[in-house]
């Protein structure tokens, strides 16, 4: 099942990159997709069949503009900090917890954190996230979790779980 789903996606990617409906291109895509998906079989997550669920794609489509809004805000924030002659930063590494269960969701959470205001994930260990924060604004653990993790957790849970 998971090999089949991955095969379809690999072949579709191949055809999109070639952008032609030549029979040779389609045959090559199917063949290369088959080889790659068989070779990658031990690496694939077990529940890849979820990729075919339409509701998850709906939430993912909702997630993208939300995420891009935060990325733009993050960049304006970093820009002001870099151009300011005083360099107003207070860096440090903080430890956070997340409630997400599936590894894929945690990976996306870590990626999202890396691209949003002043934070970058250093390590991911089970449910613990270690985050480098360029300007630590509060000392309360709950408020920190809300500021960094809370923005993305609900949507990611709908997409991946």
């Amino acid at each position: 099942m998971k090999v089949l789903v991955f095969w379809i996606f690999a072949a579709a990617l191949w055809m999109l990159l070639f952008w032609s409906a030549n029979p040779a291109v389609i045959a090559g895509g199917c063949l290369a997709g088959l080889v790659v998906s068989l070779a990658m079989r031990p690496l694939l997550p077990d529940n890849l069949g979820r990729l075919l669920d339409v509701r998850r794609w709906f939430w993912a489509a909702l997630f993208v503009p939300y995420f891009l809004y935060y990325v733009v805000r993050a960049n304006l924030d970093i820009m002001l900090r870099v151009l300011n002659p005083d360099l107003p930063i207070r860096p440090g590494i903080v430890k956070l917890r997340t409630n997400l269960q599936s590894p894929m969701a945690r990976m996306f959470l870590a990626n999202s954190i890396s691209l949003t205001p002043g934070t970058l994930t250093i390590d991911l260990d089970g449910q613990d996230l270690y985050v480098h924060w360029i300007n630590i604004s509060t000392d309360e653990p709950d408020r920190r979790g809300e500021l960094i993790v809370g923005k993305f957790e609900p949507l990611l849970r709908r997409i991946f779980e």
């Binding site: 820009m79 870099v82 480098h132």
Partner: peptide
């Protein structure tokens, strides 16, 4: 650490 945070974000965007 600061360099990586600033540079990665801005250059990716």
């Amino acid at each position: 650490y600061d360099r990586a945070v600033a540079a990665t974000k801005c250059v990716t965007m």
